[in-house]
Design a protein around this nucleic acid. Structure first.
Length: 271
DNA sequence: CGGACAACCTGGCGGC
DNA sequence: TGCCGCCAGGTTGTCC
């Protein structure tokens, strides 16, 4: 589920509620979500720390605490909600962890598929160090992007999903970016010319920006921090649009399998 | 190092 | 209805 725009939306929805909050309790019903230490160690170390900042890095939420960073990755089905203590149980069926705060509110981590992960570390780089630049920041330059593509023989679609290339892009926004750039997802990354790389670079930015402006895509599990849905799913050009006419040329959108991922594109105008 | 693929989980959906 | 297989916004480990 959540890619860069969804995580960005969740971060924005949580920030006001968590900044300045001290963690007074932590419970987990699925300890395997905690990476690198057992649940008791995690809880003991976390409780008492105060949240000073909340940022997004790629698809991670990064909470700056008194002496550690708390990182959360939502993977496919993770949700984060702010709620009052007495309402925790009724949020949804898949609450795997609850962070209790000093003002009686809680942050609930719901995760149907149990792929989501929690990290507590003094050194945030240990977890985010291998990620590529933020695709919406200026250090994600066309030149840098081109240099990364030049050493990848495989299909461009797969390269867009590589978090060391465009950190935060996932399956939806990769397909949408390729449609915007009119590039066939099967094309070898090394075969793209300068104009195509430039178009793809700006296609990535435009697709992500549109996702953010619609507060993410709620196809299935993604929810905002207040439990409501995003709207981006109503604005897709290709993702999930198989059989429907291309908004640009009218010919039917096709879904295929590329790598292990469903891939949506217009065979007529993406070449 | 790169590529291919299985694994991690649960639930929804289409087909029979 | 019921069962079965397939699919899903992601990453990581293993093998070649």
């Amino acid at each position: 589920m959540p890619e860069l725009p969804e995580v960005e939306t969740v971060v924005g929805g949580l920030r006001a509620a968590v900044i300045g909050r001290r963690v007074v309790s932590f419970t987990s019903s699925w300890p395997r979500q905690i990476v690198g230490m057992d649940a008791n160690t995690f809880a003991d170390r976390l409780v008492g720390q105060t949240i000073s900042r909340l940022e997004r890095r790629a698809k991670y939420l990064v909470f700056s605490m008194s002496s550690d960073y708390l990182l959360i990755h939502l993977k496919m089905s993770g949700r984060l909600y702010i709620t009052q203590k007495e309402h925790e149980a009724q949020i949804d069926r898949w609450i795997r962890a609850v962070f209790g705060f000093d003002d009686e509110s809680s942050m609930c981590f719901s995760d149907l598929r149990k792929f989501g992960r929690l990290y507590l570390t003094e050194d945030v780089e240990q977890i985010t160090g291998r990620l590529g630049p933020e695709p919406l920041a200026t250090d994600f330059s066309v030149e840098w992007f081109a240099s990364r593509l030049a050493r990848r023989k495989g299909p461009i679609k797969g390269v867009l999903l590589d978090q060391t290339v465009a950190a935060g892009v996932g399956n939806i926004y990769a397909d949408e970016a390729l449609w915007r750039a009119r590039i066939d997802p099967n094309r070898a990354a090394t075969a793209l010319n300068e104009a195509e790389i430039k178009a793809l670079h700006s296609g990535i930015g435009a697709a992500l920006q549109q996702g953010i402006s619609h507060e993410g895509a709620s196809i299935n599990w993604y929810r905002k921090a207040d439990g409501s849905r995003g709207d981006e799913q109503n604005h897709f050009n290709v993702y999930g649009q198989q059989g429907k006419p291309c908004r640009r040329c009218g010919s039917p959108i096709v879904k295929m399998r590329l790598g292990q991922r469903g891939t949506h594109y217009c065979p007529k105008c993406q070449t």
